[in-house]
């Protein structure tokens, strides 16, 4: 539907070739100037600043900051956290999307809102909630201590906080898509004698794999970058419970700015790789029978007609 991927660089877009959908040059360049200036100011400059500061003292200090044992431990922890939290949210996202898209039940709207809720909860509060639950004075604190379990100030606490902040991403990608696709294909498969697992594996999964991947990529980026929630439950033990974003803060607090920005640039690099993969996924998904954003039909005449009358 969209002409975006077919456009050749340098040539005019289909909108610009059509006199009815193009603007006077000054309008066009004003919009471009304002839009791109805004982009440069808020996205490009901060990104450049990170790499500039990181490499200010050259490549030697840059690499030695990254291979420092504490930094390596932080990288390992961050990867571990992402490797566990993302699959857990993936399984949840698929289950929740299946439930919401394929069945009717009461309280669905409430459930949807609950799934979205973690998106807008302040990270600081996320950390606080787990402290209230699992801290030594929390609900389960005494029981946990008696049985030798450790949740906060250890890997599980960091995991829980990370899972919370990345909770909605996979589900949010899948739900609208699976709702749009309906359930005819799955029902047909069941009627033909397929088991539930077979239906999911052979019918549903091929239809949702790109959206699934997209959700995973977003979760992963957020999981690796979470700062506020993790800092409350981490305990900040060097070489043990510091994630990469915490390591950035620590180095910064040690006046080791070059190293702080070096580790930060790793995270920025990670963000960039994520964005490249994301663009590739969108590119692959485009033009197939499945798209990441569900296609919308032309607005019905009812909404268009009055608008056109107003114009004339």
């Amino acid at each position: 539907m969209s002409a975006t991927p077919m456009r050749k660089p340098g040539s005019q877009s289909r909108y610009e070739r059509n006199p009815a959908t193009s603007e006077k040059p000054w309008v066009k360049y004003t919009i471009l100037g304002l839009g791109l200036g805004y982009f440069a100011l808020f996205i490009l400059m901060p990104l450049i600043a990170v790499f500039y500061e990181a490499l200010r003292r050259g490549w030697g200090p840059y690499f030695s900051a990254i291979v420092h044992p504490d930094a390596m431990a932080a990288i390992k922890l961050t990867l571990t956290v992402a490797a566990i939290s993302v699959p857990l949210n993936l399984v949840f996202g698929v289950a929740a999307a299946w439930l919401i898209a394929k069945f009717e039940f009461r309280g669905k709207q409430l459930l949807l809102t609950m799934i979205d809720l973690p998106f807008s909860v302040s990270p600081v509060i996320v950390g606080l909630m787990y402290v209230l639950l699992f801290g030594a004075n929390g609900w389960f604190g005494v029981w946990l201590a008696e049985h030798g379990f450790r949740i906060i100030f250890a890997l599980p606490g960091i995991l829980l906080a990370t899972i919370f902040v990345t909770f909605p991403f996979v589900a949010r990608e899948l739900i609208p898509l699976m709702q749009a696709q309906g359930k005819d294909e799955e029902e047909a498969a069941v009627v033909l004698g397929a088991s539930g697992w077979q239906v999911f594996w052979h019918v549903t999964l091929p239809n949702i794999k790109w959206a699934l991947l997209y959700g995973v990529i977003l979760s992963n980026a957020r999981a690796m970058g979470e700062f506020g929630a993790v800092s409350v439950v981490s305990g900040k033990i060097r070489g043990a419970t510091n994630t990469l974003p915490l390591q950035v803060e620590i180095l910064y607090n040690e006046y080791n700015f070059a190293a702080a920005f070096a580790v930060a640039s790793l995270l920025a690099l990670l963000a960039l790789v994520t964005l490249v993969i994301k663009t590739w996924v969108e590119h692959r998904a485009h033009g197939r029978d499945v798209v990441v954003s569900p296609e919308r039909p032309l607005p019905p005449a009812a909404t268009v007609q009055p608008a056109l009358e107003k114009v004339a």
Partner: peptide, 17 residues
């Protein structure tokens, strides 16, 4: 398929000990 998610959740909790 049924027990996979529960097993994963359990693994999450047991990671701490």
């Amino acid at each position: 398929f049924k027990f996979l998610p529960f097993a994963l959740s359990a693994a999450l909790l047991l990671g701490g000990c």
